[in-house]
Computed example of a mutant assay.
Amino acid sequence: MIRTEKQGLGALIKITLPYFALTAAYAAFVFLLEENIGDHIFKVSAQIGSVFGIAVAFFLGFRMNSAYDRWWEARKIFGNLVNNSRSFTAKIYTYFQSPSNIVPDEDINRTVIAKELIDLTCCYISQLKNEIHEVPHPPYDQKTQSLFKKYAVEQTHKVSNEVLISLSTKIEMVFADKANIEKRDLMEHINQFYNIQGKAERINNTPFLKIYSAFTRVTVLFYVLMIPFIIGDIDIGGEDSHLELLAIPLLSIVSTLFLTINKLANLYGDPLEENTTSVPIDQICQTIIENCQEVKVKLS
Rank of each mutant, 00 (worst) to 15 (best):
R3W: 09
T4N: 03
I13Y: 11
I13H: 07
K14F: 11
P18C: 09
A21H: 00
A24M: 14
E34G: 06
N36E: 09
I41F: 06
L60V: 09
F62I: 05
F62S: 05
S66I: 04
R70M: 10
R75A: 06
K76L: 12
K76T: 15
I77L: 03
N83R: 07
I92M: 03
Q97C: 04
D107H: 15
D107G: 11
N109S: 15
V112D: 07
I118W: 02
C123T: 04
I125A: 08
S126C: 02
Q127S: 06
Q127H: 09
E131D: 13
H133T: 01
E134T: 09
E134N: 15
H137F: 14
L147G: 08
H157W: 05
N161E: 04
E162M: 14
I165F: 04
S168D: 02
F175I: 04
D185M: 08
E188H: 11
H189S: 15
Q192A: 14
G198T: 09
A200W: 01
R202I: 07
I203W: 06
N204A: 11
N204R: 14
N205Y: 13
S213G: 12
T219L: 14
T219K: 02
V220P: 00
M226D: 04
F229A: 10
G237D: 08
G238V: 11
L243P: 01
L246W: 14
L251C: 05
I253E: 05
V254F: 10
L259P: 07
T260K: 02
T260I: 02
K263N: 05
L267P: 09
L267S: 11
L267T: 08
T276K: 10
T276P: 04
C285M: 01
I288N: 13
L299D: 13
S300L: 13
